[in-house]
Computed example of a mutant assay.
Amino acid sequence: MTHPCITAVGTALPGPAVDNDHLAKTLGVNREWVDLFIGTKTRHFAVDLTTGEQHSTLTDLAEEAAATAMRRAGARPQDIDFVVLATASPDELMPATVNKVADRLGLDQIPTYQLQSGCAGAIQALDLGRLLLQRPENRTGLVIGGDVCAKHLRLDRDFTRLPSHELVNYVLFGDGAGAVVLTGQEDAEGMAVHTVLNQFAGRGQPAGQVIRWFGAAESTDGVAPAEEDYKAIERRVPHLADEILWQLLETTGWTPEDLAYVLPPQLSGRMTRRITEHLQLPGAQEISCVADTGNNGNALPFFQLERLAERIRPGERALAICVESSKWLKGGFAVEGR
């Protein structure tokens, strides 16, 4: 059986890194709370925290990440047969961000797809790309994921009065984009994608995270733009991550001892440590980035893949695990170096 192959990865982060000192001073919150409760050291924003000016868009970051992936793969615009982009925060409702990115990359007369989801959208995009390569006319595609939280990053609030389920979003998240070149060519070098898991697991469960989209006709008085049930996330995510691990192992026929690397969920530095310990894979090297990049949603799996691509050798195997808490989605994939 021929597996599609990730031949190159590209990523993009906006602006300089924002450390916990800078963030704590900007928000007027306790730095030790950020260090201990979140466990993330730095993140990047598409907004200048001093002026409130947005200096990067999702289109900007997605174009940069995709162009980097194409350059590393040696792929020209005419080599790309489709583009898939996953995001929870498009620049506009229309035109779709994926089409603006395709235009900037010089792509034309090809199918484009935009998926609306949280961090699991990156897995859905990879799954769709894998399926599109089964069409005989498709040889190579671009799969992109990214998020920019500028629409909800209000800096004129009294953060000392915000409830924790709102405040956590200001210290947890960051911005970024990532992309891979995916091909169905049998002789391609890179990381072969053996399987992708994409499952809804939230039947009867309240949402763990809500991000609202306000329109001009809606009254938003007293309604938080974003909120998160962090206790529910802490309780459910480690168990869902364990389920994903064993589902992927069962599908591939691999054993825990076969794994050289594991890419755990990247909610925050603190949660990632807890989840990795819960998975009990001492023989697998952890590939994580959230402590440095912040939680940048659909970009995160691509940042992990970029780090993995630098290390994985032919024949080595890795599993990636992703849990989206919005309405509880399980995602993941299995790759092997070749």
Rank of each mutant, 00 (worst) to 15 (best):
P77L: 03
A320P: 08
V148D: 01
T272E: 13
P265W: 05
T276Y: 11
G15K: 08
L105V: 03
S325W: 10
D187H: 14
N99F: 00
G118I: 05
N138V: 02
M94F: 13
W213D: 07
C289L: 08
A334M: 08
L128D: 00
P77I: 06
E227A: 09
F173T: 08
G331T: 05
R161F: 02
G204I: 10
N198Q: 11
A188K: 06
T195K: 03
I123Y: 07
G121E: 01
E53Y: 04
L61M: 10
R311V: 04
T293C: 10
D103K: 13
V168T: 12
T272M: 14
L249E: 11
P16L: 05
Q109H: 13
E228W: 05
V168I: 15
S117R: 08
M70C: 15
L300A: 08
P163K: 01
H152T: 11
G332T: 07
N295P: 00
A69N: 02
E189I: 13
G52S: 09
K41L: 10
G10Y: 01
T42D: 06
S288D: 06
V98Q: 03
K151L: 05
W246V: 01
Q78R: 11
R235L: 14
V47R: 04
K25L: 12
D108I: 03
L162P: 03
L61I: 02
P206W: 07
R270N: 11
L132S: 00
E64R: 15
G202N: 15
L153N: 09
G337E: 12
L23R: 00
G294N: 06
L281I: 11
D229I: 05
L249D: 11
C5F: 00
A217H: 12
F159M: 03
D147S: 12
L105D: 03
N138I: 01
G184R: 02
K330H: 12
V101S: 00
I233T: 12
E250D: 14
E234A: 07
A86I: 08
V181C: 09
D229Q: 15
A120D: 10
T40L: 02
G332E: 06
T276R: 05
M191S: 07
N99G: 03
R236D: 15
V29R: 10
